[in-house]
Design a protein around this nucleic acid. Structure first.
Lengths: 339, 339
DNA sequence: ATTTTGTGTGGAATCGGTTCCATAAAGAAG
DNA sequence: CTTCTTTATGGAACCGATTCCACACAAAAT
């Protein structure tokens, strides 16, 4: 049987309230009793049962973290960042994956998690949350932070997709003198994809290149869809292909390879995300880096902030983290890839 | 204020015991009352508070998962596997990272997690746990599964490092006719490293090649240590280099590249782990695949098994998952890398 | 007709803590 | 020498469920 607070109280010859005070440093307590209690506690390795503490204090010191399928180093960084900050603050991380094959079932899962009272707050990375879900989420009155999706009225952490895509496009225009740049999008409703497309368009506009809709191909963030888009890009005379993520860029490169078209020399291919492997492929991929680790840290900080000032009605925060252009060789540059 | 079981009871005009029975399907209850209660529950979105349920039932339906730094896709797969199985069984995953820079502090963390009563079981991936820690861990009487470390007397999930290294070495000997194969180890006490070295030695022996200690270089699983080992390997006339993990193999390849020595043609380099990027480097790395996803799933299954039959004293399980040789080009093979 | 057995229900204890409140003793202020 | 604080402590309520037990009533068996 595990030692309980009553056991300690009995042994010390005091009431459980006194033991509680000694342990938590709340209220008055005499020096000598405190010392005696603490000794007994150490001696018997007594640790208060979280289950009881949670119920009594009405909080769990646990934050839920919902992420899409964790394969790839992409999300690992986020988890790491979250856990780092939470653990520093004595909080725990309850992890839940979001398999993309059945989004509905998964939403049920995290909604039920929220209602269970098992967590004090939740960080949600759910690409393409619908407003109906958001509404349900808001009903549970626990703090929520969304990642990578611009949910109005809630705390959100975003990366600056727009600027990233802008810089990338401008790089292709100014450094490599491209004028026919194809863009492969992600899923239609993806916030990331939309913003990146917007950045691409804006860069064209600012550099007096007319936007040509035929150069925009619809993809869905998979390698396969990148492959499939190549034909269309070439047909419309693209001299550069900007894929909305690295995954698709990889598909593009493999397809071009198959067609014996030299990437970097004959055609430029660039991506977005700076996936871990992007520097290792041939040619090393020019892409846009996303600060995944920072996203995790900021998300955790934001949620803790919200918890610690729940009474004060602060307006929702919208934190946009900046992206960084990573120039390697697939765009035609001849860098020493020290990145 | 959240709805409680008392609220529902009052509204239904019954006692809370009856509501509890209706919800849990335990004991006797009349059809009509059950129906009425369930309706009220749905109407008010009542969900029992886990904090209370946990205390009452003396379990949390939560399993702790302790992993080394999650960067790299390596561990993502494990998490995924664990979460998959646990969530299917209505369990939750409490995630904790193990930053390798301060192992002691981190051990404290998971030991304290175990004693807090916050979890019902724990899966620990702690490279180089010392026996002292194992002893402490055993004292908390909750189920434990160790990953990747052959802890005697406990449930462990391992991969067949020995056979993997054996197959790899034999591949180099039989297919590529190498006789001077260098081996770069990991940290001295690493179980993985030791087993791989053993497999390497055994393959040499079985193929009548004398083991030459000067061909074994000490590394520590970092890319840097791979780089540093190259000089020594070459000096001793190695025609092939077998690094105990992909990370080091990458270091070796980069160093050889720098020296203008063609990997695959002039010298063979192979790794171990089949890290996500290993197929993307130049040349694609021949390596040994570890079933990380299966490891996660098996770990979760094992711990649940243990929980559900705690009374029955089953002898500790030692599950060894098989590895698979992945032949790409860095060994000199000219495969179409469809892997 | 009486004893068993099977159902249905509420009250109370329990899980292991925290916290409010009453009370008492000791020291400070009047 | 009172009166008011300040300090110290225990008792009891409470957090929100589960579960054991007693009791009532109905149906089945003797």
């Amino acid at each position: 049987m595990k030692t309980t607070i009553d056991d300690i109280a009995k042994m010390a010859g005091v009431s459980k309230s006194t033991v509680s005070r000694a342990l938590n440093g709340t209220g008055y307590i005499s020096k000598d009793k405190k010392k005696k209690i603490l000794e007994l506690v150490k001696l018997h390795n007594y640790v208060p049962d979280s289950k009881a503490v949670n119920l009594s204090k009405k909080k769990t010191m646990t934050i839920g973290l919902v992420l899409p399928s964790v394969t790839g180093p992409f999300y690992g960084e986020v988890i790491q960042g979250v856990e780092e900050v939470l653990s520093e603050n004595k909080y725990f991380t309850l992890f839940m994956t979001f398999e993309s094959n059945s989004p509905e079932k998964n939403r049920e899962r995290y909604l039920s998690l929220m209602s269970s009272g098992r967590i004090d707050g939740i960080i949600i990375f759910d690409p393409q949350v619908d407003s109906q879900t958001v509404e349900k989420v808001t009903k549970f009155e626990i703090p929520v932070v969304y990642l990578g999706e611009d949910v109005h009225g809630s705390d959100v952490i975003l990366v600056d997709n727009f600027s990233g895509a802008y810089s990338m496009t401008e790089h292709l225009i100014k450094i490599h003198k491209h004028e026919r740049i194809a863009f492969i999008t992600g899923p239609a409703k993806s916030f990331d994809s939309v913003e990146r497309l917007r950045g691409y368009k804006f860069a064209l506009e600012n550099n007096d290149i007319e936007f040509d809709p035929s150069l925009v191909c619809r993809g869905d963030f998979t390698k396969e869809s990148g492959k499939n888009a190549v034909e269309n890009c070439l047909k419309n005379g693209a001299t550069a292909i900007f894929a909305a993520n690295d995954e698709m860029a990889l598909g593009v490169i493999e397809e071009l390879e198959r067609k014996r078209i030299k990437v970097g020399k004959e055609i430029a291919v660039v991506g977005f995300d700076d996936t871990f492997w992007s520097r290792y492929i041939q040619p090393p991929l020019t892409t846009v880096h996303q600060p995944m680790h920072s996203i995790g840290k900021m998300a955790a900080k934001t949620i803790l902030d919200r918890i610690n000032s729940k009474d004060l009605v602060k307006s929702p925060m919208r934190i946009v983290l900046s992206t960084r252009l990573i120039v390697r060789n697939s765009c035609g540059c001849e860098t020493d890839s020290t990145n």
